[in-house]
Each structure stands twice: as C-alpha cells, then as structure tokens.
Amino acid sequence: MAVKLSYREYFKEEALPLMWCAGCGNGILLRAITDALADLEIPPHQVVVSTGIGCWGKADDYMKTHGFHGSHGRALAFGTGIKLGNPDLHVIALMGDGDALAIGGNHFIHAARRNIDITAIISNNFTYGMTGGQYSPTTPLSYKTTTSPIGVAEPAFDVCSLSEECGANYVARSTVYHVTQLKRFIAAAIQKKGFNVVEAINTCPTHFGRRNIPGDTVEMMNYVKEISISKSRYEKLDEEEKAKHLVTGELVNRDRPDFLSVYREINPAASETGRGEGK
C-alpha cells in the first residue's frame, strides 16, 4: 500500500507551541494547508510560502517548505518575483485581510488581473489582529474595533467578488469551522494554474470576538459557522439576511491563461526553462 504523505512533511512540529491566542483559527488554517500539500504530494522544496505581516503572517515560521517573510502587504509582489524567477515553483501567499486588501490591495488586484500563477490564501478575521484589533477593509459595517469604538463607518470588501472582478481564475470561500471543505478548496487552488484565491473566514476571539460577539472562543467559532452558508441557502434569504451572511463554496473556476503563458506566447524567445541564452 502506498504510504500517504503526512502534513508533518510540511509542518515544522519542533516549532510548537504556536504563538497564536487560544481559539485563534490560524492553526486550523495551517493544518488545512499542510494537509492539502500532503494530499497533492508536492515535494516541500518545490513550494515557497510568501507571508505578509500580521498574526497570520507568522505562519512561515511553522513551515518546512521554502519560506519568505517580507513586508506588510507585499507578499504577492515578492511572490511575483519568486514565481517569475523560477516558474516551476508552487508559490503560496499567506495574507491577513488587512495585509492583502488594505496596504496590499494594489498588488492584490493587479496579481489577479495579470493572473500570475500564485495561490493566495487570505485569513479573514475581520480585523487587524497583530496590531491590537483595529478595523480592516473587511470589518462589517457598524462592528466595533479599537479604532471604531462605536462602530465602523466604512462598508466592507467582499474578498471573493473583488477577486472575481479583477480576474482570478479560481475563487473559493470556506471557514476554519468547515475544515474538510477548506482543505479541498486549498488543494484545488494550489493545483490550478493562474491566480487563485481561497478566503478562509477565521476567528479572532481576542480582538474581533471580544468586542462584537458575546461569549468565549466557542461563541467566536459559532459566529464563523453561522454567518457562512452555501450559495443555494443564501439565495433563499431576503436582502437584510443576506447582508449578515457570506457565501461559501467554489465561486469561480475558469481558465484564463496565466501571465507567464501569455508572456511566452507573445515573446517566443523566452525559453521554457528561463535559462536559455539568446544571440
């Protein structure tokens, strides 16, 4: 019987315990990613994780693949160079909601437009966890954070609609509650060529939960579970209810050619290996 690879091939067990708070879903997301890599049997040296800055941005410290940890919001920009420098790599960008969509928003929309072959895994915990719970571009309207003590006045981005509009090839949303679905979407995104986004609705009991969800870590997880519903259930809701929910599932799955394929087609001299010498 073929021995299945274990997530331990990718997860740096000796770095335990994780730095994250009790009930923070980052560890669950990390497990889903390392399980997905094991299912796909991609050798660790063919994977680079490029992390942003934030609580989720610490994930590279727990990975045994190649790792990159740069500056806030730039995981995709560094990742673009990494991918184009060696097109054989699987580049996985791990970003928080603030990292990917506020400071990194410009890189995000252009990575999607270009359809660069990178998998973006966004931990959406609706807040800036690392800096103490300020509002982010995904904090729901009127929710409380340390910088919106009465309620945030800005509407939130829908990460998946944004990704779709900008041109991503694959867009899926799941949660740290729906762990098997989450892993399935991550594996699909890694396998697919082009810019692929998995939004993982995540828990931050310490900041988002404390100010908005009565109860403990378990109630924070229940919130994540309850706001997330399938497309078919979502469509039956009235507008007011719709505003309180997020659709989970594979939302986009198309085959636009990725950046490098188009670049090589237009510049036929650009060799497959990237090592050929011209004239």
Binding site: F11, L18, G25, G27, R31, V176, K183
Partner: peptide
C-alpha cells in the same frame, strides 16, 4: 477526526 483538524494548536 474533525476534532484533530479543528484543534488550533495541534
């Protein structure tokens, strides 16, 4: 095995 997969701290 959902408890294992959902345990944030391995």
């Amino acid at each position: 095995r959902l408890c294992e997969l959902r345990c944030p701290d391995f």
